[in-house]
């Protein structure tokens, strides 16, 4: 395992742990998702730099575009949830359990 691999792996794992264990607010979950995506961005950039291939130089940019779309969808859902459930605590999402 190279230092670069270790760095982005630990960033990803920290983001995943945050998403899994810190479950109070919707926004913090979205931020953790964004953290996951940014660690992947670093990983793809490092890959492109390390191997100097033109093909993979575009991958980080495409990843950023997708993660922006995903963050947009997440924020839209944040607004929708706030309107229907009156606040943004994840605790409140309990209508469907039975």
């Amino acid at each position: 395992m190279t230092p670069a691999h270790f760095a982005f792996s630990s960033a990803f794992m920290l983001g995943l742990a945050g998403l899994a264990f810190h479950r109070t607010h919707f926004l913090s979950a979205l931020l953790c998702l964004e953290g996951l995506m940014l660690s992947l961005f670093i990983a793809l950039s490092l890959w492109a730099l390390q191997f100097d291939t033109m093909n993979s130089a575009a991958l980080p940019m495409i990843l950023l575009a997708f993660s922006a779309c995903e963050a947009g969808a997440g924020l839209a859902l944040l607004v929708a949830t706030t309107r229907t459930h009156s606040n943004n605590r994840l605790q409140n999402l309990s209508l469907l359990q039975c």
Partner: peptide
Amino acid sequence: PRAIEATTKYFFAQATASATLLF
């Protein structure tokens, strides 16, 4: 409210899974 909640749950599960897949 139920549809929004279901979408939220789906979104989180799928986003996490696809991030893990790319990782």
